[in-house]
Write a protein that binds this DNA or RNA. Structure first.
Length: 297
DNA sequence: CCACAGGACGGCT
DNA sequence: AGCCGTCCTGTG
C-alpha cells in the first residue's frame, strides 16, 4: 500500500511492517545521537525500544526500514509520527550543508539522523535525570523507573516496561522513588511531577506559545534549567529552533567554530544567529559528529 | 581514597 | 547578573 508517499508492506505472519526505500534514516544515527535513552542495540545490529505501550524492534537493511512486532495500524497511528516521516530531511541537510565545511561533514556523517517526536512527559523526567549524569546511568535509572512503575509488555522472549504514567509517580512516596537510584534528582522528579499533575504548569500549552515562552514555562519545574528545557522541547518535537548546549556541544563549537573558550550564553547566541530555525537539527548533527569522531575529549 | 560525569540550585558578591 | 561549592551514584 501507499501511505503519504511511503510504500508500506505488511508481513502479517512475522508481524513485520516494511517501509520500502526509506531515505534519511539510519537507526544507529538516530538512536545513538543523544536524543533518546530507551532504544537498545541488539547483537544483530537492530534496535529494541518502547514507545507509549508498544515495544518493537527496528532494522535498516541498507534500503528498507523494518519494524518488528508492528501492524499497519500501529505504523499509521504511532510510528509515522514518532519517526517524523512527514519531514523532508534532505531539504534540511541541503540547507545546513551550505553553511560551511564543518556542517557539511557533520551532516554527511550523521545523514541518517531523524529527530524523534518523543513523549513530552517522558522527556521532562528523562532529561531531569540527565543532569550531571552519564548516559549508561541515565538509561539504567529510566529503566528502573519503568520496571518500578510502568506496565509489562512482552516482545518475543524479552520483557519490556512502558514509561510510568504521571499518576504512578505522584501517588508514590519520595523515599520509594529513591530506589530508582536517581539520587538528588529524585526530589526533582517527584516535585516536577506534582506541578505538572496539578497544572501549575500546563505542558499542553507549550505548542501554542513561542520558543522563549516555552522555555520559561518548563524552567519553572525543579531540575529543569536552560539545557534540560531545550532538550525537552527539541526531542519531543515541540520546538526546533533551540540548541541544547551541554558541555560537549560547548566544547565542539569552541573547537570547530570559535577557536577559543566561550560561555554557554555565547554558544546559544551563535547558534540562534547562525543556524536560525534549523538550530535543533544542527545541534544533533554536530553532537554526533564531534563525539563519534572524538573531535572533543 | 579521590576525581568527576550530557546541570541545576542556592548562596554568595 | 555572574561565579562557585554542592549534590546521589557509579566508575576509573
Amino acid at each position: 500500500m501507499d501511505y503519504k508517499g511511503y510504500e508500506i508492506r505488511e508481513n502479517k505472519s512475522d508481524g513485520i511492517v516494511i517501509i520500502k526505500n526509506i531515505r534519511d534514516f539510519n537507526p544507529t544515527h538516530t538512536f545513538e545521537c543523544g536524543q533518546c535513552f530507551r532504544w537498545i542495540r541488539e547483537s544483530d545490529g537492530s534496535y529494541t525500544g518502547v514507545v507509549r505501550d508498544l515495544a518493537v524492534n527496528v532494522t535498516f537493511d541498507g534500503k528498507d526500514m523494518l519494524i518488528g512486532n508492528c501492524t499497519i495500524d500501529d505504523f499509521i497511528n504511532v510510528w509515522y509520527q514518532y519517526f517524523d516521516l512527514e519531514r523532508d530531511y534532505s531539504e534540511i541537510k541541503k540547507e545546513l550543508s551550505k553553511k560551511d565545511d564543518i556542517m557539511r561533514k557533520a551532516v554527511e556523517f550523521g545523514s541518517g539522523i531523524r529527530i524523534l517526536r518523543q513523549d513530552l512527559w517522558e522527556m521532562i523526567i528523562s532529561f531531569i535525570i540527565s543532569a550531571n549524569n552519564r548516559i549508561p546511568m541515565i538509561m539504567k535509572i529510566i529503566n528502573n523507573l519503568s520496571e518500578m512503575y510502568g506496565n509489562k509488555i512482552i516482545l518475543g522472549d524479552k520483557i519490556c516496561y512502558t514509561f510510568p504514567d504521571i499518576n504512578k509517580i505522584t501517588n508514590e512516596n519520595i523515599d520509594n522513588i529513591r530506589i530508582c537510584k536517581a539520587g538528588f534528582r529524585c526530589k526533582y522528579i517527584f516535585n516536577a511531577s506534582m506541578m505538572v499533575k496539578n497544572k501549575e504548569i500546563d505542558i499542553d500549552k507549550l505548542n501554542n506559545v513561542d520558543t522563549d515562552e516555552a522555555r520559561r514555562i518548563l524552567r519553572k519545574l525543579p531540575g529543569v534549567g536552560p539545557k534540560v528545557a531545550d532538550c525537552v522541547l527539541l526531542y519531543s518535537g515541540v520546538k526546533y529552533d533551540v540548541f541544547p548546549a551541554d558541555i560537549w556541544i560547548k566544547r565542539a563549537v569552541e573547537k570547530l567554530y570559535f577557536h577559543h573558550p566561550a560561555s554557554i550564553n555565547e554558544i546559544q547566541k551563535f547558534a540562534k544567529n547562525y543556524f536560525g530555525d534549523l538550530a535543533g537539527f544542527a545541534q544533533l548533527y554536530l553532537f554526533y559528529y564531534a563525539r563519534e569522531n572524538k573531535i572533543v575529549d
